[in-house]
Design a protein around this nucleic acid. Structure first.
Lengths: 362, 362
DNA sequence: TCACATCAATCAAACGTTTGACCAGCTAAA
DNA sequence: TTTAGCTGGTCAAACGTTTGATTGATGTGA
């Protein structure tokens, strides 16, 4: 493996045959073109010398690679970015494709340069992936074999795999609805990300469907809600509107703030107030107590399906006509939802002494 | 950019010159080998046709690529995996290198296959990166240009960039020490990960240095402490040993459980009990209230420095002799540490009504 | 006028692989 | 005896690029 690895000619010399035959035998295309004895000799020589084909030469000759470009937009801004990436990598490998990875910022110029670079490397197709669902500014020239995952292009009509925001969030909300909640508040992102727009709309639908009380008044918007505004929002909600029995959160991060507010207010989850969210960042949703009932963003599925579609396209056996594929996230039920407390009961009654006593007993 | 891009011969024909000259001009090596007029004509033709060099052919001819292999071990198990990856990618690009990405499980066989694959792609060097600090099982054959980031190999003596566990964690502990804390408990991982072993030792050193009381008794070990045991640990600590004024946590995730326990126990942070941790997962450390004072794992620096070292090695201009490089994480001071409460004061006095009243005033 | 430099450009080989065309020797059917 | 087919291989061209060697002008100094 060091510096120079053996080449076809070395194996051929060692086995006393031509390079052609070695190539044929090693690629399996030369069945019945040589004797078993020679075949064995060639294979032994290849093994002995640790021969590995030079993919550069092979691809040059064959006029195509088995490499796909993964163009990742601002990977680091999100935790769990890895999951889409991992899914893409594994799917590619399982089809014997390799991954050429470039990460850039979300602007047409950087993306254009990255695409040119990939073209130079003769990738057969490109997957553009982002780590939160948004629009990507595309340059003029685009490869024909292009698929989007967790984002969508500003131009063109390419296969696009995104989370089914509406259907997914609806699962969370339905959980509240069928549990009997009527007084549901929602803490939503105000900036017009696709996720925010869709989830807001979903809340309206759910409110109508389940006949939630005062739902219009109970929608609370914050710009850049990720920056810790869940706490303030929940404080405001519970203090100004104590009849609320459930809070739906834009995402897990918001829910984390909500938990802290409810904790401080001595409102117990879920017996006094139920909480649902979106994302399922295990670090949060599994780390909170009680565990957060939330919808898992389908990062893995988006990565896998986008790559498989891309490969089908590259191999010209894509029969799907649908461009936009929305993937529904799975509802992960933990312990943050229960039936609503009786309508007459104040939320400010959650006894805190209970867990304390439990512990003190022993 | 579609399917077939123009090649040297096309540009040559368009400009009415030989391919040699086009190559020379476009690579800048042909200064004063042709007239300015011809040079302009060639460049115009190249632009017109959207010519992009075929890197396969170039690398084959030049007998070397500018591609480095990034072998990532189990990327998805950690959030913020992206940061190391991003750092590696950006550093590589800034030196005009590209990244060939493979992600595998931590076993010698998978890693061996990935390395062979990279060798086939003629990478000039390999960076093996993991997303938590541990040992990597290596196969027999290893490339000569190999560097480790956030992990280390079971064999061989390769440049290795890891977090300075001791020096970093000591920053957190020193923060407690110089604030005057004497009764410090620690919640530590029991499994013998390098991080756990080193951080345990660091705690012992700090305890000795600052003359912490009963420190041996105040070390609490949990196997797989990431699975939410911070809560139970903190409960146990505060109920059995209420004189504790500060809790040092193995990592942010543990601190998250500690916060929840202290919240339930009505112990306020930091006025009654201070908390420090390790990792600085912004999702947690920035999302908790009050913000968690913790040490940032130097993912970005490890990625960057490892790649730059690797490139120096590949270009045979590496003058460093040191193999193991420990990178110190930065202490991120937020609001979870204060001076210890008076020795006579019980921790169970944090008034919860205060923030409630504040809010009710308006 | 000759030798020699310089300029502007071309030639041709090579990188490692793949693969259709070819070939020599043998057997079996026509 | 010819023909055809099989067995067990080899030959040589090609993929797109780079680059040392070469070349044919033109200019220049002795």
């Amino acid at each position: 493996m060091n510096l120079k690895t053996a080449k076809l000619a070395d194996v051929a010399k060692a086995a006393g045959v031509s390079t052609s035959l070695v190539s044929l035998v090693l690629s399996g295309k030369g069945s019945n073109r040589c004797s078993e004895e020679t075949e064995a000799r060639i294979k032994a020589a290849a093994l002995e010398l640790g021969y590995r084909a030079n993919r550069l030469a092979r691809s040059l000759k064959e006029q195509q690679t088995r490499t796909i470009g993964l163009l990742s937009i601002e990977v680091a801004t999100s935790p769990y970015a890895g999951e889409l990436l991992m899914a893409a990598q594994r799917s590619a490998r399982s089809h014997d494709y390799d991954l050429f990875f470039v990460e850039v910022e979300n602007n047409a110029k950087s993306i254009g340069e990255a695409l040119e670079l990939m073209a130079e490397h003769q990738v057969v197709g490109v997957l553009i992936a982002a780590f939160f669902h948004h629009e990507i500014e595309l340059p003029e020239r685009l490869p024909s074999n292009l698929v989007f995952a967790n984002c969508f292009g500003s131009r063109g009509d390419y296969p696009t795999y995104v989370p089914a925001e509406t259907a997914s969030f609806m699962q969370s909300l339905k959980m509240l609805g069928i549990s009997g909640h009527q007084n549901v508040a929602v803490i939503m992102e105000e900036l017009p990300w696709p996720a925010a727009v869709a989830r807001t709309e979903t809340f309206k639908q759910a409110a109508q469907q389940f006949e939630w009380v005062d739902s219009a008044r109970r929608m609370h918007f914050y710009a850049d809600v990720n920056s810790n505004q869940g706490y303030e929002a929940a404080m405001k909600i519970m203090l100004e509107d104590p009849s609320v029995t459930a809070i739906a959160c834009y995402n897990d991060r918001v829910a984390m703030g909500v938990y802290q507010a409810l904790n401080e207010l001595r409102i117990s989850i879920p017996s006094q107030v139920s909480v649902v969210a979106f994302d399922d960042l295990e670090l949060i949703s599994g780390g909170l107590r009680p565990g957060l009932t939330t919808v898992r963003l389908p990062h893995y599925q988006m990565g896998r399906e986008a790559v498989e579609r891309l490969i089908r396209i590259c191999e010209e056996r894509d029969e799907e006509t649908q461009k936009l594929v929305e993937i529904r996230g799975e509802l992960v039920v933990r312990d943050s939802v229960s039936v609503p407390r009786p309508a007459t009961e104040s939320p400010f009654e959650a006894s805190f002494s209970a867990p304390l006593q439990e512990k003190e007993e022993k």
